[in-house]
Amino acid sequence: MAGIAVLCELQGGQVAKGSLGVLEEAARLGAAIGEPVTAVVTGSGLDDAALADLGAHGAATVVAADDPRLGAGLAQPVVDACAAAQEAGQYRYWLAGASIMTADAMAGLAARLGAGIVIDAVELVADGSDLVTRRSGLGDSVLAHCGFATPVGVVVTRANSFAPTEGATGSAPVERIQPSFRSWSEGVELVGHEDAEDSGPDIGAADVLVAGGRGLGDAGGFAMIEDCAAAFGGAVAATRAVVDAGWYPYSAQVGQTGKTVSPKLYIACGISGAIQHKVGMQGSGTIVAINKDKNAPIFDYADLGVVGDLHDIVPKLAELVRARG
């Protein structure tokens, strides 16, 4: 086993920024442990010239799997492509920045290879000639140093953990492989896609975000969130759950499949705090959470947690803020 493979995801025809960041991190780590880095790209109708540019982000080689079955963004055909790359390259480590697709693909690959898998890694560290991950745990109160006991190790890094360099240049040779697809990998088909409507206000620029989740009870609950946000001179954010339920527009959604925000103040109202929400707002300055469920995971990473009924607290908070002028 030799080398580090990085699964790079295409989003809207471009390699995702998260993938480029992980690729660069892999290159730094590869230099430290003496392992070359291969970028693995899957898709349909791939352009070799564009793929060669991944050399600018640390890839020594690019392996491309090009097939119509890889063009729908479904994870299981990508497992077959990664398995084909593994057969040819015998990599020691597989890395991917977390996305809906890559996390599932890495899980499938780990199961196929019998490889240990670490998810939610926030740092990658060289330990002699080995890779050790720092995996966040217990509501981010501890970092577990996780290495591997299997010949191959698979790592999914937390979304937004590694940012790529802008304006880097370089080129890498591109090799093409043809995966063979398993019957179960072809058992899911994409039958429809709607682009998300993203025409609302830019919540990324707000200093204060007041965010609403399922705990609001219904769409009408957003009236008090809007009022509170206005009192703070801020904007309104929402969780995936309420956006999917049609309570609030997608443009306000914070999370892995939404916006990444870092306001000075984030007030989470009726939000449980699933990881897919956390990765979108953990960079906020101060986090206040209001939830009637004392078990809500968001209390693990809020600065101030208030167990109580947001319907009582939020309007009063807005009133007090206005009274202060």
Partner: peptide, 11 residues
């Protein structure tokens, strides 16, 4: 929901 919007898939 995926990063680019909503997918409908049949399994």
């Amino acid at each position: 929901q995926v990063e680019t919007g909503y997918d409908t898939v049949r399994a």
